[in-house]
């Protein structure tokens, strides 16, 4: 470590970790969202199940999954540490603090949004990941693949779950709205000619990803796909 000194323990180093893990999660979401979107092919989940099968069996993906979990945990752990430290940096609070005058509410509420996402994640992992990886998917589809699609259709009949998922996607959207551009800022990847582009890509990414994710339970619940 000596050569790197406090590369990761300094305030900027900690931000690097948040940024890098955040960007990694952002990439993951693209893959995740891409595979999920296969349900909109509307072929009774056949293509979707192929994708799911690939994700579940390919060893690179499986290895990636471990990295993903580590990334997620580091992201969460680091966020907690930062939050605690930041609270200590202002022991006496203001009687009046007009945060909305100078910053977006969601950029000030990343911890809250993150916590909501974490709760959602527990539900979500229990719904699908635990099923596919441990308890087992009960049925197979016409191609003989495990029918994760069927699991999904069943879960999303529950209106409470539907509400939880939609709310979570709002949280995700705002979390990303701040997180995307913020990661670039943290990594120092900015340039007056590209800043605008990074910003708008971030906004579109956040909106599209969240809408696509939310569209699935909605589509299933309202029977828009078979």
């Amino acid at each position: 470590m000596s050569g790197f000194g406090n590369a990761f323990s300094s305030s900027i180093g900690k931000k690097f970790i948040m940024g890098i893990t955040g960007l990694f999660l952002i990439l993951f979401l693209i893959v995740h969202c891409g595979i999920n979107a296969l349900i909109f092919i509307n072929d009774g989940g056949l293509t979707f199940n192929v994708g799911a099968h690939f994700m579940a069996t390919n060893w690179i993906i499986r290895a990636g999954e471990i990295v993903l979990f580590i990334g997620l945990l580091v992201h969460i752990f680091q966020a907690l540490r930062l939050t605690l430290q930041n609270q200590k940096a202002r022991p006496v609070k203001y009687a009046v603090n007009d945060g909305k005058a100078n910053s977006k509410w969601y950029s000030r509420s990343m911890g809250l949004l993150g916590t909501l996402l974490l709760i959602f994640l527990v539900v979500h992992l229990k719904d699908f990941w635990v099923v596919s990886r441990f308890t087992g998917i009960p049925t197979v589809d016409a191609n003989g693949h495990e029918d994760l699609y069927a699991v999904m259709k069943e879960k999303f009949q529950d209106p409470v779950r539907l509400a939880v998922y939609i709310l979570a996607m709002f949280s995700l959207c705002y979390h990303l709205l701040h997180g995307f551009a913020s990661a670039f800022q943290t990594m120092g990847w900015n340039h007056s000619k590209y800043n605008g582009m990074i910003k708008s890509v971030g906004v579109w990414y956040s909106i599209i990803i969240s809408i696509l994710f939310a569209a699935m339970p909605i589509a299933v619940y309202f029977g828009l796909i078979q």
Binding site: Q85, N102, S107, R108, H178, S182, Q185, N190
Partner: peptide
């Protein structure tokens, strides 16, 4: 001092209009 979370409040309130780009440059 606490750790920056890129809310941008500093830039908005700075009486001299110091830009967030400086933070990015420092990070880099």
């Amino acid at each position: 001092f606490g750790n920056c979370t890129n809310t941008g409040a500093c830039e908005a309130e700075c009486p001299k209009g110091i830009s967030l780009e400086n933070i990015a440059r420092m990070n880099r």
